[in-house]
Design a protein around this nucleic acid. Structure first.
Lengths: 203, 203
DNA sequence: CGTCCCCCCTGACATTTGTCATCTCCCTTT
DNA sequence: AAAGGGAGATGACAAATGTCAGGGGGGACG
């Protein structure tokens, strides 16, 4: 009997080790490699051609979302399952667009992990149902690329002037984009707008 | 030979289960209970009187820091070890003040966990060295209680007027406190001030 | 071809934010 | 009793922010 070969990617060492230990307790699953970031994960997938890649989203070097896209493109025999803290509609959408087969939240009971891996391995989709609903009715990302860039920086505490300089725009233009973003998101100032966009996974 | 009895508290189900699995692989450690929040953890500690409590900080119901204080007070035979994502000087200081014996980051390799548990069990202190240094030279929390309340709300995107109403203050007073906080933190506006304070663990 | 959308700009305006000096009240400490 | 010190307030001013109306110049698409 052949075990399901799994690679786990996760930047927090403690959590990486713990998840691996958890999966190793399953008789039909084997963790054939661990990766601390997206780049490592991609090269490990290239070398070992595992059945399933379980990956976090927010990681240094390469995001789990980018990673999912690369793996889908270059090693389509490996199915990707996202495992993340963030219940953000925008993340889910991007994950599925990038070819991920599963999207599981770290909130869920740990008993679900092995099962999700098995399902994804069988070619089924595994998507958190609550999040899927939320993703459905919160609609698509309303922000343009420029608005995203600017709102991101505003959320970091930068002034309109600083943002303008950084992006080689006039300050008035920056204020216009911010105003537009604020109204699109139904916020009442840049801070609230940035928080809202972040919570949706649009930033 | 008696195993070290450990309770793990962590609000992300997946991580909770994984950490428990990781600890269970050690021959001299037994996980006698799991808790999904601070309240659960406290009552479990009361019932089982474990040797060590490993707990996250940011949890619903009761913070790991509050929990540490309660356990220290009511069940001093149980040693508390904080296990968290956040390398924030203010968190470390509060944890130690609350009587925690260890402060470990989820960034660290998973191999360190069991060892840290053993050391804490022996009565030794385990503190992340880099963080300890940072905590040392970033000094103590410079904010007053009012400043903290106001800065927190400002960071959520509330306007001075809204904050004033919420706290039954005049708007001018709110602006004064914000101005004071901004200057104490060396920031150039409320957003940057809030981010800075958060990153230090003062919010 | 026209239309739409995105990008970028200007100028004007109202509002909010950040800063300072100054004042009252109340509570400690000496 | 006097001297501080914290919490809260006021008023005034400069600077940053948010909003509107308008105007260019593309690229995409029917």
């Amino acid at each position: 009997m052949k075990k399901i070969q799994v690679i786990v990617a996760e930047d927090q060492g403690m959590v990486l080790g713990a998840l691996a230990a958890l999966l190793e307790t399953e008789p039909d699953i084997a963790v054939c490699a661990r990766a601390a970031n997206g780049r490592e994960a991609l090269s490990a997938v290239g070398k070992l051609k595992p059945d399933v890649l379980v990956t976090d989203i927010e990681m240094p070097e390469m995001t789990g979302l980018t990673l999912a896209g690369e793996v889908k493109e270059r090693y389509p025999q490996t199915r990707v399952m996202i495992l993340t803290t963030f219940a953000r509609p925008g993340y889910l959408r991007r994950a599925l667009d990038a070819g991920a087969k599963g999207y599981l939240l770290k909130d869920r009971p740990s008993a679900e992990l092995a099962d999700a891996v098995r399902r994804v391995h069988q070619g089924l989709r595994v998507v958190d149902p609550d999040l899927a609903v939320e993703a459905w009715d919160s609609g698509p990302d309303p922000l343009t690329e420029r608005e995203r860039q600017i709102l991101w920086r505003a959320g970091e505490g930068k002034s309109s002037g600083e943002i303008a300089e950084e992006l080689h725009l006039s300050e008035g233009t920056v204020r216009n984009y911010l105003s537009e973003a604020i109204s699109k998101l139904g916020a009442s100032n840049r801070v609230e707008a940035a928080r809202l966009a972040r919570s949706k996974g649009w930033l």
